[in-house]
Design a protein around this nucleic acid. Structure first.
Length: 282
DNA sequence: CTCCAGGGATGAT
DNA sequence: ATCATCCATGGA
């Protein structure tokens, strides 16, 4: 099946550090949307898809986001415009709440390649299998499922100290202490506070979850990459910042689509300036 | 406020 | 084969 997908770059979107389980297969990718194994492939302005209804696929990839309007609403400074240009067609996806929360809890202090590995191991070991033609994909294990594991079993998936946090959060959720769906009704600040109360969730992870799983397009996660960009491009002569100062600036400066701004600045920085020379010389 | 543990892949030597 | 590097959270 095919659907129209203008202003969309599938590969760019899947490789921008939002989601960690999609795998290349032939000219496209295999992954999971909700409980279904899905294959997607970009063909110019069209998206070829198999495994789920078009409506579901379109929603997952946020094909309804008005990218032109969003870009036009971002600040007009050189760094932002460069990043926009570089990230044309990159969309903020709509991810399932638990999967997104759990993945970002396991992401702390990790690089993208490693997060992918952790996610894959958890899925293969504990998630339900779904087949898609020749290939098999695995759903992300439910909170219920993870809550019943031991910390040791999680550590064996290379989670390190994150095992404890993931387990504790899974238990809170599966025992009904927190209902991730109910949180969707809260305004941004209260949602952030609720998420930050979960073990292993701080400001950065909370903002990622808000942006990627709660459609809060203002959320502006600041990791080392984004902090570097903010300092270098927006405050080249400042050295000291009070905690929360950059966060505050970003919220005001980047505005209602700050999440898009962040994602574009992040991806542009990561792809264009990655090799830091080793500080060692002879 | 500042300092620092923490863990496993990854890339350089 | 070894070594430095990457990094968010939480607790001192």
């Amino acid at each position: 099946m095919y659907m129209a997908a203008p202003d969309f770059d599938l590969a760019l979107t899947l490789n921008s550090g939002q989601t960690f389980h999609w795998e290349s297969l032939g000219k496209g990718f295999t992954g999971v949307i909700d409980w279904r194994a899905v294959y997607v492939e970009q063909q110019g302005e069209a998206l070829k898809f198999r495994g789920a209804p078009g409506k579901i696929v379109a929603r997952y990839f946020s094909l309804d986001h008005p990218l032109a309007e969003i870009c036009a609403s971002l600040p007009n400074d050189p760094a932002m415009q460069m990043a926009c240009e570089y990230c044309r067609g990159l969309r903020i996806m709509r991810q399932p709440r638990w999967e997104c929360l759990a993945t970002f809890i396991t992401s702390s202090m990790k690089q993208v390649a490693h997060i992918r590995q952790i996610s894959q191991t958890l899925r293969r070991r504990f998630g339900a299998a779904r087949s898609l033609g020749e290939t098999t994909v695995y759903l992300y294990p439910t909170a219920r499922c993870i809550a019943d594991l031991s910390e040791r079993e999680l550590r064996e998936c290379a989670l390190g100290y994150r095992a404890r946090n993931l387990l504790a959060t899974a238990q809170l959720i599966s025992r009904g202490g927190i209902d991730l769906e109910q949180l969707a009704k809260l305004p941004d600040d209260e949602l952030r506070a609720q998420l930050c109360a979960l073990p292993g969730v701080g400001a950065k992870v909370a903002n990622c979850v808000m942006l990627f799983a709660y459609e809060r397009l203002r959320a502006f996660p600041i990791d080392v990459w984004v902090e570097r960009v903010l300092r270098e491009k927006y405050f080249p002569r400042r050295r000291k910042f009070r905690p929360g100062e950059l966060q505050k600036f970003s919220a005001k400066y980047f505005g209602e689509h700050g999440g898009y701004a962040q994602q574009y600045l992040f991806h542009h920085a990561r792809k264009t300036a990655p090799r830091r020379l080793s500080a060692r010389k002879s």
